[in-house]
Every structure is written in structure tokens, then in C-alpha cells.
Write a protein that binds this DNA or RNA. Structure first.
Lengths: 206, 206, 206, 206
DNA sequence: TTATAACCGAGACGGTACGTCATGTCTTCTC
DNA sequence: GAGAAGACATGACGTACCGTCTCGGTTATAA
């Protein structure tokens, strides 16, 4: 995968003309992040304003991204590349690591603000949402599936449930907290709590 | 609480002049629903277009709602009044009923489209989102808490977990499916599957 | 003829809605005149700038005129309505009056600057130029023809030349001075000089 | 004066480096002429488009001319060098030859289109217009003055009028036709008709 | 022969203006 | 006084062109 970033300039031939300024790339993405962190709600994010904040001409933005959606999609993808959680010793540890990663994303201001803003914006555009879904979400889901399958193979996870449902049992609660609650609703130890409770069930243990 | 609907006209005194047309109220809300069902993405929803589709002047809309957010918030609330799930015989049945209600909302076109659209729109506006959170979400969450507390009292639910976490264990998975997956990801029997698996845990049963 | 002014609002029926602000009409046209008098060359005249100078939204301008050409065409027409020269006692007096009128237009700063600027702009757009030609120029030409025909009937003007050519013999010299020379090239007495010389011919009189 | 053509490259010293491509010079000027003949109105003439049509980089144009005005001014000057009318046997013949030259310029598509386009464009820029005036127009005017002075010396032209006025009496009518009328308004024999009528006057001859 | 320097086409750069559209407010007429 | 209509100032939309700049390359003269 090529990683996040602006669309390549048609990479046709011998690359003629003045090359695109990497500084402009950075300035634009940073401007978006800065604006969001400064509390810009989604409606406040205009291409006009982004270009202004980046000290860049509008055309320079449109040369790289086809519109606001494509830009925001890249911004959120840029935050996604950080740390794919490594493989731990037990399935329980892997699950905790994955949820802990999600939790941290929800806590770091830059991540949580950007995620909420961009998620809500992008979700409203079916095609852009599909693009996001097919890259970011799918990759994340497959990582989760791999962990679960390993657990099933090892006998640590029951094998009579669809793997999709199992995955959502772990991811869903963290998502609900992050989306529907305040940021303070993501306390230390939440990942472990979710993982352990889902593993053991909520019926009282004898 | 006054329930969903347009803001009262300042109900100051003897209510003089031509009374507000109830037909206009209906026409406006119906126009929003129709537009969304016809596939309007969120960006297509403009006050201009809503008034036009309702055959109503813009001022008539603004007289009732302070802006697009307030209008949409009322629209989503109007869909929420339908069927508060009744109390079943066991806690498990109550939980299934609540999730089944959520699942249906995700399946019915009007509900799912409106919910996604409006949620998306409203969430981006902090104050409006808070309003939505403090009425709709809180009420729903408290219903869930009541069910869970009953289960704890009866000994059907373990009592060593925070009730908020427990609630999200049930609601989260359904929300994740509804938000992140296709509509087809909400098959018959999903509510039971989630409830039973969370109750029993995902560890293999002996 | 309806006279200069912004396009009527489709004058369909009972004229509903808020009527257009006459103040805006005035402000826009005055802003154009002011900008030109302040030395704006043609390239400096932008709809953006005109609206700004008039303290008016762009849409308010576009609601009245379809574009810059239509607006400038109206501006120039507004300057044209001044004083259709009255009928004098002799043909020679009529001709002098007409040329004197042209000469004054070239001298008054507002007129000359606007005329040059707008004429220049309008002439470059074939369709707009045609419109200008078919209204302003044609009317002026026909007035001149009427004068000349009266002269021919009276025996004061030779009848062996096309009337178009005769007209241009009088108008052309003044136009050449106004267009090709400095403003100082339109001295007092020029109209008389042209008319008399053309009438008598440039051959030495015996 | 060195005649029309792009600005010399600062002619400093021993002229090092790759010399400018004469082909580019030609291509640019030809591109302008072609675009105008193809019906480009003045607004359609952009440096961007000119460079594109000439198959040349924008910098190559700007290296030769300081801007659009300077380029167009050179284009029109390039059309002006053609055929200075020769000296005939009588003053009347000289005048006819000069006006016939003007008439032809108005008839040939390339000339008339370019002239109108460039004149209108250049006239709006005071300094560029002055440049045009001081070279092209002045030269032409002085040729006319020379003819007229010869006529005065010979006794063929009256000597009680300013020579400027006399010149405009001949040039003005042709200019008026060319600028204000259709191209068809420049019929064969028009030059003779103007010259003879101005010479003899428009009063009926006894 | 090898620098050196100005040229070349291409195209990115920060700007400005285009003409359209939506915002929320206001103004007028009709019911 | 409510309602429909629509004008109002504001400001973002995405495109085009401005004049400058920067790239990889070419083509001359000067060392």
C-alpha cells in the first residue's frame, strides 16, 4: 500500500514541469489538523479557509485532492498509520492491545477531534465513505479477524459464532464509548475490562 | 417535557393574529423525511431546498426552528417516539427486545437513512449534539441501565462491573454493525446472538 | 424604448416578494462611475470590486445584470440619455449642435472616461457590441440622417452622395479626434470648424 | 527605430548562452493572429492560451514581452509595416491612396480583426496606448500632414484651416465606417467618394 | 573539450476574479 | 399577524488565468 498522501500527478512519463512542493503538502494537512484541534466544527472547514490557513493558493489544494472529502479522507488516513499493534503472547493480550490502541486514539486530542470530525463528514458521502471503508476499516477488521482466528485455533475462543459478530463484540463497546460519550469515558483499564468481560461473559461466575 | 415538535411561539399572552398552520409544520418535517428517503445526502439538505420541497417560505421554517440543526434534531426525535420496548419476562428477553428495536431502526429505510444522515449532521455541531445526547441518548441509556440493574438484583448479571460498561457491551456491537457495515449486516437473529454471546462470554464453554 | 436600467424581474404577474432595492441599483451604477473616474482601467473593473465598492453583494449585481458586459452597457447607455440636440433654424446649425454634443461628451471627465472605458470593453464582445450598435449608435445615426435629409430637401446639401457617407463626413472627424487624440484636441469651436469645412470643401474658394 | 519585434535580451555584452529561438518568436505572434482570426474575442485572449496555442512555455512569452499589452502592441505594429502608400501625381491621388490603404486594412480579415481587437485592448492601458500613439499613429499622421502640406503649397488645399483638422476630415470618415459599421460598409470606391466630397464640400455645386 | 550561461517546454506556485449557490435576515403583499 | 415570495449581505464553491518560479534538458559561445 502506498500510504496516505495527495494524489500522484498522473505519473505518466518522465515527470515534466516543476515538481510539486512537499512543503505545500505538509502545510495543507497540518493546517487541517490545526484547524480541527483549534475547535473548528465540520461546518467551519472550508477549502477556502484551509488554503488560507496553510498559506497556499486554492489551486494548490485542488491540484492534489479532488475536493474536501478526498482531502479529509487523506488526513484521517494519515493518522491511521501509527502503530499497528504487535502480536502478543496470548489472544487476550492481543485483544487488549488492539482496544488499547483504539482507546488512545480516542484520548489524544488530535486523533479524537480529527476522527470524529472526519468520520462524520465523510460518512455522509456514500462513495467517499465506501473508499474509507474499503481501506481503513477493512484493514483494521482483518487484523482483528486474524487475532480471533488464532484464538479459535488455540481453543481460547468459541467456534460457534460468526467471526464478524465476535469482532464487533470487542470493538463495538469501545466505539460506543468513543462516539456517544465524553472523552472522560475512556478511562485507564477500560480495554482490559471490556476484553475480560466479553471473554468471560456477564453472567455471574460461580 | 414538551416532546418533539417545533418551538412554541413564545406563548406570551393572548395569542393574537393568524395562528400557525399545523399543515406547515407537517409539510416541513415530511419534506425533510422525503428528501432523505429520496437519497439526499447530508450536503444536499439545505434550508432553501427544504422550504421549496415543503412549498413553504423560508421564514416559515425559521419561525419554527432556529436553524437547520434544530430542525433536524426535531426530525430525528420524531422518529424516536415509536415503540419503547416493553418489559419482558427475563432480563435476557428485555435485552433482546432493546437490541431488536435498534436493529429494526437500522433496517427500516426511513429510520436508517434519517438516523445516519441526521446523526452525522448533528454530531458535528457540539451544542446540538449535546442537546441530542442529553435527551435521546440519555433516555435510552437509562432504560438500558434499568434493565441491567434489574438483572443484577435478580442475580442474572454479574455485579462486579460498572453498569456503563455493561450497557455498552450490548449496545456497542449493534451500533458498530449499523454504523460501520452495510445494512445487510443486520440479519434476523442478530440481537439474540449478541445478547447470548455477551451473557455467556466468548470463551469456549466446557 | 424602455430606457436604461437593470433588467426587470421577469415582470410576470402580481410581483410578489420583496421588491428590488432602488438604492442598490443606484449604488452599483454609481460605484462603476466612481471607479472609472478614479482612474480604473478596464482590467481593474471586476464584478467583485464593483460589488465591494457599492457595498452590495455580488448576487445583487447578478440579479440585475447577466454579467459585466450587460452592466457596462447599461452604464454607457445611462450617459447617453442626456440631451438629444434640438432642431435649429438651419441645417448647418443642427449639424453644429450635434457635433457640439459629441464634443462635450468627450470633454466631460465622467463621460469621456466612461465612454472610452466602456466602449472599449463592450466593443470587444461581438454580441454586446451589436446590442450597443443596434440601440445607441443606430438612434444617433438616424437622427443625423434626418437632419441631412432635411438639408437635401431644402437644397442645402448635395443629393448625389449616399447619406451614410455624408453622415460619416461630419461624425468621423470628431470621432477621430476623440478616440485618437488627447482630450485637449477637442477645443472650443471645433464643431463649427468641422461642419463649415465639410460643407464648403477643402479646396481653396475662389 | 528598430521596427516591431520582441524586446532585445538586455544586449549587455558578449551575448553568452543559448540564443533565443526565432521559431518561438514567430510561433507566438502567429498564434495570436490565428486565435484572433478564429474569432477569439478580446476576453478569450489569455497569455496562458497564447502560449498553449503556440506550443511554447509561458516563460518564453514573458521573456520577450512584459505582458499581454506589449505583445499585442507588437502584433499590431507587425501588421502596420506593409505598404506605405507611394506618392502620386496629384494631392487628390495621394489622399485616395492613403484612404484606400486604410480601407483595405479594414477589409482584410486578419487586419481588421486584429486591429479592432488590439486597438480596444491597448487603448484601455494609458501607457501602452501612448506608446502606440507615439509610434504608429504619429507616423501615419505625419505622412498625411506631408501630403496635405504639399497640397497647400500647390494651392490645391485651402490654407485657412489647421492641418490637424484637415487630416481628420479625410481619415475620420473612414475610421468611423471601419469602427462603427459592418465590414460590408467599406465598398469599392469609398476612398474616392470621401476624398472628392471632402475636397469639393457637401453643398450643392452650382 | 569542457564549462558556463541563457535558452527551451512544462507545469507548480500564491493570488484574484469568475458566476453560482446557500446562509439567515429583511421587507412587501396577500390572506 | 401569519404566510409565501423573494431580495438582501455574506461568504464558500471549483475553475481559469495572472505573472513568477523551478524543474530536466538543449544549444550556443568562451575558456
Amino acid at each position: 500500500m502506498s500510504g496516505p498522501g495527495p494524489a500522484a500527478p498522473e505519473a505518466g512519463d518522465g515527470r515534466r514541469g516543476r515538481p510539486r512542493s512537499a512543503a505545500a503538502d505538509t502545510a495543507i494537512v497540518e493546517a487541517v489538523l490545526r484547524l480541527i484541534e483549534e475547535g473548528a466544527s465540520i461546518g467551519d472547514l472550508s477549502m477556502e479557509g484551509i488554503a488560507r490557513a496553510a498559506g497556499v493558493g486554492k489551486a494548490t489544494v485542488y491540484r492534489r485532492w479532488s475536493g474536501k472529502n478526498a482531502l479529509l479522507l487523506d488526513v484521517i488516513r494519515s493518522l491511521d498509520d501509527d502503530l499497528p499493534p504487535a502480536r502478543g503472547v496470548s489472544v487476550r493480550d492481543d485483544l487488549v492491545a488492539m482496544l488499547e490502541h483504539l482507546r488512545h486514539r480516542g484520548l489524544v486530542k488530535r486523533h479524537s477531534a480529527v476522527f470524529r470530525t472526519v468520520l462524520t463528514h465523510v460518512q455522509a458521502q456514500p462513495d467517499v465513505w465506501r473508499e474509507y471503508h474499503d481501506t481503513v476499516i477493512r484493514a483494521r477488521r482483518e487484523a482483528m479477524h486474524a487475532v480471533l482466528r488464532r484464538g479459535i485455533d488455540r481453543g481460547e475462543i468459541r467456534d460457534d459464532r460468526e467471526i464478524d459478530v465476535l469482532a464487533d463484540l470487542f470493538v463495538g463497546p469501545m466505539l460506543a464509548r468513543a462516539l456517544l460519550d465524553e472523552r472522560k469515558a475512556l478511562p485507564e483499564g477500560l480495554a482490559e475490562q471490556i476484553v475480560d468481560t466479553v471473554l468471560e461473559g456477564v453472567r455471574p461466575r460461580p
